[in-house]
Design a protein around this nucleic acid. Structure first.
Length: 288
DNA sequence: AATGCGTGGTT
DNA sequence: TAACCAAGCAT
């Protein structure tokens, strides 16, 4: 396998975007919150929300002291609002099990609600500087192309972590840079649709480029249509609840103009199942 | 392990 | 314009 670490380490400091969570001393809690927000939400949408969140809740204990409803409101339109609930739950777990300090061990991080393989290692590496493989969708695409010569990554699997480990230098700091650089490369140069190989530090050793950018047929599962979907209905109901008074609103007053009443009711029920809504004294509201 | 889960910008 | 895409996770 070609040496990918050296060119990434040389490239990264020149082009790395100035992002809040990359500032020295940003703090583990800030990194943790940023990673929750970045799960499937683009960087540019996250930045302002992250700063507002940390201004309001500078520590896990501060967040845990407020109701989940407040987390869901503050989450606003970031999408996938279950993440707000999970982040609140994780903050509570950090307060109760870790004395309010974001854990450093990957195993302990994995045990927190809403934290999986990616986020656990991202926190351990970017907040604490430890040496672990951090593999997100960008890194998987970079490796699929540069190493395997494929146009897109397949579905995530346990071998991804082993593949990334092979690339990491021994030094902790360098390893963290390689992790960050692979993600940055995938996000800004080796993009899914129109990669800019002229700007790529790995171009001279990329298997996919050497093979002439073949379409290797690695198609993603098609994303379901959003317009008219249950997801859209859930989003609309939740927005109504965010905008409603704390004590809630009558079931029949939720989204009165929604075209499909059955779909609206289905959305309400599923939000209750997910813990994003609750019924109290006959009124529907965000979770207390 | 395949599926469901928001929202908005880009092509 | 419809489809694609975006620092994943839990079930």
């Amino acid at each position: 396998m070609p040496d990918l670490a050296a060119p990434l380490i040389a490239w990264y400091p020149r082009i790395a975007r100035d992002l809040p969570w990359r500032r020295p001393g940003f703090g583990a809690w800030g990194v943790l919150v940023s990673e929750f927000m970045l799960q499937q939400t683009p960087v540019t949408r996250v930045v302002p929300h992250l700063e507002a969140w940390l201004d309001r809740w500078p520590t896990p204990a501060a967040l845990a002291a407020d109701a989940p409803a407040e987390a869901v409101r503050q989450w606003a339109n970031l999408g996938y609002p279950r993440r707000a609930l999970w982040l609140h739950r994780a903050a509570t777990e950090i307060r109760d099990r870790h004395d309010g300090v974001v854990p450093r061990d990957v195993e302990a991080l994995l045990a927190l609600t809403g934290i999986g393989d990616y986020t656990a290692r991202a926190v351990a590496v970017f907040a604490y500087g430890d040496r672990h493989p951090v593999v997100d969708t960008n890194t998987r695409r970079v490796l699929a192309r540069a190493v395997d010569g494929r146009s897109q990554p397949g579905p995530p699997n346990t071998r991804d972590l082993a593949a990334m480990t092979l690339l990491l230098p021994e030094d902790d700091t360098d390893a963290a840079i390689v992790n960050a650089a692979a993600m940055e490369l995938g996000a800004t140069v080796c993009t899914a649709r129109s990669p800019r190989c002229q700007a790529c530090p790995l171009a001279d050793r990329c298997a996919w480029r050497a093979a002439g950018h073949p379409d290797t047929g690695d198609e993603r599962r098609r994303q379901a249509r959003y317009e008219g979907s249950d997801r859209q209905a859930r989003g609309a109901v939740l927005k109504a609840l965010r905008d409603a008074p704390d004590h809630g609103i009558r079931h029949d007053d939720v989204l009165t103009d929604w075209p499909d009443t059955l779909q609206r009711d289905r959305a309400i029920d599923s939000l209750i199942v997910d813990g994003l809504a609750e019924v109290s004294e006959g009124l529907l509201r965000l979770p207390s």
